[in-house]
């Protein structure tokens, strides 16, 4: 099978992991190009800046049409539509009830990069940012997610919205699952734990460092 896209990728990036995870769930082949985000800061190199002036990873270049996408939410949407067309359960964009809910989750997921994501880079790689402030913002985000998922549980739901996991779940999963890397444990968040477990149980789930497999007997 030929690659659906090229991913400029970094193994420790939660944002890159969103794409690797979704590709694994969809069994969508892609080509990965390792970018030396750390210690080389290659995402800020001339070559990468000319591809993505924002200097962030991941970057996706689609094989058909050569679209360059630099926002993970756009990449997730592209993958869902590429896989299942407008009917894809992963991105019910025009469903009057679910569509806006999914957008809400995508935006929430994007916000985690600057809270948990930065707190994690600080704790792990000594990123020169205010780690404590990022951690406080991360705790706020975890609490907000716990509230949302508790609501969902009261309604008998498991996912961010609707009866099927969507790209909103995938946009939120990496940094929430990785928050212990930044010292933000999951102990006081039962609804988050239940949801993390559900994502980790999905057929085709892929791990990344910091998120271990469920170790089911094979």
């Amino acid at each position: 099978m030929s690659a659906a896209f090229t991913l400029y990728d970094y193994v420790l990036s939660g944002n890159c992991y969103k794409i690797r995870l979704f590709a694994s769930l969809l069994a969508m082949p892609y080509q990965s190009v390792a970018i030396d985000f750390y210690p080389g800061y290659e995402h800020r190199s001339e070559r990468m800046l000319s591809l993505n002036p924002a200097g962030t990873l991941p970057v996706m270049v689609t094989s058909a049409g050569g679209q360059v996408l630099t926002e993970t939410n756009a990449m997730l949407a592209w993958m869902a539509l590429h896989d299942g067309g407008a009917q894809t359960p992963w991105f019910p964009a025009v469903d009057p009830a679910l569509g806006p809910q999914v957008q809400q989750g995508l935006a929430f997921g994007a916000g985690l990069t600057d809270s948990i994501g930065l707190a994690r880079l600080h704790a792990m790689l000594d990123w020169p940012v205010d780690g404590e402030a990022a951690k406080r913002a991360g705790l706020k985000h975890l609490r907000a997610l716990e509230l949302h998922l508790t609501d969902r549980q009261i309604d008998g739901g498991l996912w961010w919205a609707g009866a099927h996991p969507t790209i909103a779940d995938l946009a939120c999963f990496p940094y929430v699952a990785l928050s212990p890397d930044a010292g933000l444990e999951h102990d006081g968040f039962p609804a988050i734990r239940r949801w993390l477990y559900a994502v980790r149980s999905l057929p085709g789930f892929a791990t990344m460092p910091g998120i271990h497999p469920l170790h089911e007997l094979r």
């Binding site: 420790l12 792990m124 212990p180 890397d181 460092p209 910091g210």
Partner: peptide, 8 residues
């Protein structure tokens, strides 16, 4: 990848 698995 290997070392960050150990870190946790």
């Amino acid at each position: 990848m290997i070392f960050l698995q150990d870190r946790s």
